[in-house]
Every structure is written in C-alpha cells, then in structure tokens.
Design a protein around this nucleic acid. Structure first.
Lengths: 220, 220
DNA sequence: TTAATATTCAATCGATCACTTGAATACTAA
DNA sequence: TTAGTATTCAAGTGATCGATTGAATATTAA
C-alpha cells in the first residue's frame, strides 16, 4: 500500500495543522473548550454565518479535533478531548517564545499578566481547599455549568460590579476565565481591586485546569 | 489599534498552524530537530528541489518555527527551540488519539511499538548510568555529532549488521533514532534480536529526549 | 575581475481555501 | 401530512498555496 509510513503519518498530522491554520477555527476551539455548543450558538458567539460555521466545524471534525452529538434538531459540538487543549497550549508557548507578533500583542494587551501575579493552578487548588481564597469564575453561566473549579462562584464579568457583594470581603479573590488570551479575568481583577478587594488571576483558564487533570465540578 | 487582541493572537497562531499544514514541512521539522542543515542538504534528504525547499523554510521561519544562520555560502537552518518539539509531540498525541488514519498507520507499521517494549526516557537514563544497558544511536553520524544520549554508541542502522561486534554481547541494547515515526530504531531492534542480542527501543527519539530536559552530549 | 556555487526572488499554473448564496436534508410539533 | 427550524450540501468567486522554472543576489576562490 505505502512505501513510507512516516510520510503518511505526516500527511495526517498536516491535516491537523490545516485545521489550526484559521483564526476563526482557533476561536471556535477556544469556545468549544469551555462547553459544547450548537452550530447556531457558535455562529452567534463568533459573528459568522451558520453555513460558514458548519463548514469550519466539519474541517475540525475531519481533523479529529472536535466531535458532534446530535440531539433532536441540534448538533452539539465539543472538543475531542483534553489532548487538544494541550496541543493548543503548546502552540501558544511556541508563539509567545518565537513569534514576535504574539509577543508584541501579549505585552501590549496582557501586560498585566505579570503585574497581576497570576496564581499557578496547583497553588490555587491548595489554597482553595484550605479556604484561604475565593475562586471566581467570570465566564457566562452556561460555561460555568459545563464545568468549573470546585467551590468557585460564578459571576460573569459584566455583572461583577452589581453583584460584588456576593463575594466575601476579607478573603483574596482568584478569578479565572476561558484561557490565556481571554481578557475577562483581567477585567475582573481590575474591577475587584478598584473596589478595594485583594484579587489575582489564575494563570490559565478552565480548559487548561481540566487538561492538567485537576478536579472539575459540573452543574449549578 | 486593535479592538480584539484575542483575535490578533489567534491570527498569529494560525500562521503557526499554516506552517504545520504541509507534510513536506513536517518532514523538514523532523530533520531539523536532529541537527541544523543547509538548504541543499535538506532538499537532498527529502527529495525536493532547492528552490522549493527554500520557500518552505521561509514559511517555517516566518511562523517562528526555525531560524537560519548564514555561514559563508551556506545558510544553516535549525529549530527555533525545544518548544517546537513539544508542540509536534502534542500534535502527535492528538493524531494518535483522535485521527483514525494515524491510528491505522501506527497499528500497521509501528505495530511492534508495544511488542518491542519501549523504554521510557527516565528509565533509560537511570539504567545507563548504572551501566546496565548499552545505548545505541542508529542515526547518521552527522546527527549523532549534533547531539546524543551521553555514552551512546553510534552505528547507523544500515551498518548495523557488519558492525554488530562493536556492541557488548551480554548487556541489553536500547536503540533510538529520530522520533516516534522514524522506523530506524524498529529495524535496529529487529536486527539485533535476530543476532541473539537482547534489544529494546527508547520510547521516543533524541529531540523528545532533549526537550524533556534530559542530558545531551555533542561532538564525536 | 571573473567564475563558480548556495540561496533567494519572481512569474506562472493548477489546486485548495474561505466565504457567500441558495437549495436540500433531517428532525420536531401541530 | 404539513409547517417550521437546525444543519448540511452544492455551486461560485476571489485569494492563497505548493510546486516548477528561470533569473537575480550574495559569497568565495582563482
């Protein structure tokens, strides 16, 4: 059949690469890493047409990165597994290390990344178990319900000001969101500090937390 | 300047994805992970024309995955860093887990992967330090010289039969090559066993060994 | 300076890609 | 069955990609 199995494997892996070669699809993957979504939901969230979204999803499916589940009229897509999150993280590390453009944007818009003293995942787990911090999930409720850090409180970042009383005043707050390129936890920390609370960011979002094998609760 | 930094980052990461969307470039990356190479060397090793090879290399360079070093008439390219190897490993894990085609090929041609009882890297490091195994690098001498497992013996797989006497008879041999999709160490183990030696494979190649932070010797 | 060599550039062609548009399919509820 | 909705399919367009070819550039040696 084949003379060179290595090249066959590379051909298949190149299809995975092709799936990762579109900014739109990267955004889909970030969203699907939070929770499963129907085609229309994804299209609405990203501002694309349904037909175009469907086509992108099929490319991702053919590459093995997402799987679909049909339920009645709807088809719900989700990431194939945590390995996909790990792969995206590895791509991010390459980008931040070697792509000048990525470094530039991160320095410009995520400058607070270091200033805000991000909390490593395992450190947060320990301190949360000891009751030393309040864990705050600032994503939309649907994504919170699909999986969140055990014990976390869900207040979407846009509701934060009016619902800030729900947070204990003295304990430090650690906020997290969708991932390293999601601005919601940055905004949240700024708002919390402005109100006089001690607040920091989790170093990454929930998908990376889950991919690291840390505990995740669902529902709520 | 920009309204959505996330999309800008994804746009840059998509360029990395584009660089990974060609089987030819995947092969270049595997070779450059072993040792730096000139354009012509790479072209010869992969059977492409020099002009085509040069164009591919520039795509890889624009994506930040490789860097070039000019020396006289030659330009030597190499991987930008170990993060690139980690990223390729993450892609391989996704492929093996979720792409049926990859799984099929691996089962078909690398079926011995489990039968040959691959040795984990850290286990090899320990056993080599205790002098319990002979470490055998079956790659071409140029790649061996650019970096190898400390204490390894270099016998290219094609010379193995006639140089087999160079190996201690009683000690188990652990062979390694370029990486998980390189057949050389599989061949080597088969040849060694046919000659009555105890032989196994290292689970991965030298690039993964180096990326894991394990010690590497050069020269020789 | 001249000749030789390694690499890159530029122009070209066929194939694929992203996106749009409009129709077809699959499923649900009345 | 019929109407309504979510998704997919199919065709078309402009853009990009991979590879080829031939010329241009940069460096070295005579």
């Amino acid at each position: 059949m084949s003379i060179n199995p290595k090249r066959e494997v590379f051909a298949s892996l190149a299809r995975v690469g092709t799936a990762l070669s579109s900014p739109t699809r990267m955004e889909y993957l970030e969203l699907l890493a939070q929770a499963e979504r129907s085609v229309e939901q994804l299209a609405t969230l990203t501002g694309t047409t349904v037909a175009n979204c469907s086509q992108h999803l099929q490319k991702l499916r053919q590459a093995g990165l997402v799987v679909g589940r049909k339920e009645g009229l709807y088809v719900f897509y989700r990431l194939a597994g945590d390995e996909v999150v790990a792969m995206l993280s590895a791509m991010s590390r390459v980008g931040e290390a070697y792509v000048a453009e990525v470094d530039r944007i991160v320095r410009l818009y995520f400058a607070h990344k270091d200033e805000l003293e991000p909390v490593p995942a395992r450190e947060l787990l320990e301190r949360a178990r000891k009751g030393l911090v309040t864990v705050l999930d600032v994503r939309p409720p649907h994504e919170f319900a699909a999986g969140h850090v055990p014990g976390a409180i869900n207040i979407p970042v846009h509701d934060l000001e009016k619902r800030i009383k729900e947070l204990p005043k003295r304990r430090e707050v650690v906020a997290y969101c969708r991932g390293p390129y999601c601005l919601m936890s940055f905004e949240a920390v700024q708002k919390l500090r402005k109100k006089g609370l001690r607040a920091r960011r989790l170093e990454n979002g929930l998908p990376e937390w889950r991919a690291a094998g840390l505990p995740v609760d669902a529902g709520g």
